[in-house]
């Protein structure tokens, strides 16, 4: 469904030097698949997400969605960021309906859909509350509802639980899976947390530090529905050992070798 064909993205720094964010990345993601991107900071994970959204155009290579080349932003995607970035003057319901308004659709015809999503996200009774009255985890739930209200087929999540405390984070991950079971989407999920990536995804894409390349694409061998107990599963440990090896192997190389 999503196809990245030998994508390279190079930025120019203020001094005029090229910065290779991503180099020669090819990846195909199937319909309704849950794929995580893990890798050290600055490996171009977020850039990859923006490329899929059409917010950034590749220097080389092509992004295709269902066979059509992506050249500009398109509305069939929902985006969730690390911070909820809700509008403080809007209630929970109106924040969710923000997507509808910005898309130029009629808010009142999507109200029921928004309300049922809010309920599904465990926020029933909070429709009229303002963002500052909610905890960080609840704000992020609102942001997820906002990304889903126009029923996009692709959900892009850029470290969506990165700003939450560890306990809320685990809970939110499982909630997201529950939501995903109900409303199947193709999810591209950027995270720093290896356990989170394994627990949630069908496949985990491990990236190398700058320039970001694919180190390995890993099929997660755990059955669905996933539970927290699976973290004690031998396969879980194998996966996480392998991902750690891939990420830390490069770090242990001497600095001069890496630069070469």
């Amino acid at each position: 469904m999503i196809e990245l064909a030998s994508i390279t993205k190079t930025y120019r720094s203020r001094q005029g030097d090229p910065i290779h964010a991503i180099e020669d990345v090819s990846l195909a993601i199937k319909e309704k698949e849950f794929v995580s991107l893990v890798g050290p900071s600055g490996c171009g994970k977020s850039t990859l997400l923006k490329l899929v959204a059409g917010l950034v155009t590749p220097t080389r290579g092509v992004v295709r969605i269902r066979g059509t080349e992506v050249r500009e932003p398109f509305p069939d995607v929902g985006i969730v960021f690390q911070s909820a970035v809700l509008l403080p003057w809007r209630t929970v319901l109106d924040n969710v309906l923000f997507s509808i308004e910005m898309l130029g659709l009629r808010a009142d015809s999507h109200r029921d859909r928004a309300l049922s999503l809010i309920e599904l996200a465990g926020l029933a009774g909070f429709e009229r509350k303002y963002p500052w009255e909610l905890s960080g985890g609840m704000q992020q739930r609102v942001a997820i509802c906002r990304a889903l209200v126009h029923d996009p087929s692709i959900l892009l999540m850029d470290e969506p639980f990165g700003a939450l405390d560890a306990m809320t984070r685990e809970e939110m991950g499982l909630e997201l899976l529950r939501l995903w079971e109900e409303r199947r989407k193709t999810i591209l999920f950027v995270t720093h947390s290896i356990p989170e990536a394994i627990l949630l995804s069908d496949r985990v894409v491990v990236m190398t530090p700058r320039p970001g390349r694919l180190a390995r694409v890993l099929d997660v061998q755990l059955p669905r529905p996933r539970t927290v107990e699976m973290e004690f599963d031998a396969r879980f440990k194998d996966h996480s050992d392998e991902i750690r090896r891939l990420i830390f192997a490069r770090r242990q190389e001497p600095a001069h070798a890496r630069r070469a």
């Binding site: 923006k50 500009e72 970035v85 308004e101």
Partner: peptide
């Protein structure tokens, strides 16, 4: 927040709409 600008852009909202609904408030 740049995220809100990205979000508005992904909805293909015009610059004027983004200004009225997001940036100015």
């Amino acid at each position: 927040p740049p995220e809100l600008l990205d979000l508005s852009r992904s909805y293909r909202a015009s610059r004027l709409k983004t200004f009225i609904k997001v940036r100015f408030p």
